[in-house]
């Protein structure tokens, strides 16, 4: 039971502040929204919202505290980014190098659309005979199924 008590004692300290904060509903709801946008610095890929780590809990309390002081969400995120580094932003900034991550997929998609559009619109050079037409669909499928 000793380790359980030790863990409980630690958790109690957190619970005292977290518990008090949890009663304040308007702050808490906004806190979860902010916590979702911030990565927990000690976890792999989890947000402060989802993480059960000690540091994430402290950060949640910190967010509530700042909210109660009247800070707006963006200011709190900036404050956290300054304190823990830009790396904690779940959403990469849409400026500078961070813009690259947002642009990348669209460049890929645009190139892909270009290729597909070229393939489906280019004129066939004379109609080639087709050896499969709609009537033979099931048979082709069955033959292929043998491999499965």
């Amino acid at each position: 039971m000793r380790s359980l008590r030790a863990a409980a004692a630690v958790l109690l300290l957190v619970a005292l502040s977290a518990g008090a904060a949890a009663a304040q509903d308007p702050y808490e709801e906004r806190m979860w929204e902010i916590a979702e946008k911030v990565a927990c610095p000690v976890c792999e890929g989890q947000s402060v919202k989802d993480s059960n780590a000690q540091l994430a809990r402290e950060m949640r309390d910190l967010i509530v505290e700042r909210l109660r002081l009247g800070d707006d969400p963006d200011a709190i995120i900036d404050f956290l980014a300054e304190r823990y580094g830009e790396g904690i932003l779940m959403d990469p900034p849409k400026t500078g190098l961070g813009l690259g991550v947002w642009v990348g997929p669209f460049v890929f998609l645009a190139a892909g659309i270009g290729i597909v559009a070229y393939l489906v619109t280019r004129r066939p050079r004379g109609l080639s005979p087709s050896y499969v037409d709609e009537g033979t669909v099931p048979q082709t499928d069955e033959r292929g199924a043998r491999e499965g």
């Binding site: 979702e36 946008k37 890929g45 830009e86 779940m90 990469p92 961070g98 947002w102």
Partner: peptide, 15 residues
């Protein structure tokens, strides 16, 4: 981003 900037940039669920 670590190679170019020396600091890691997180890419999370919102992206």
């Amino acid at each position: 981003s670590e190679i170019f900037r020396g600091a890691k940039m997180a890419v999370g669920a919102p992206f």
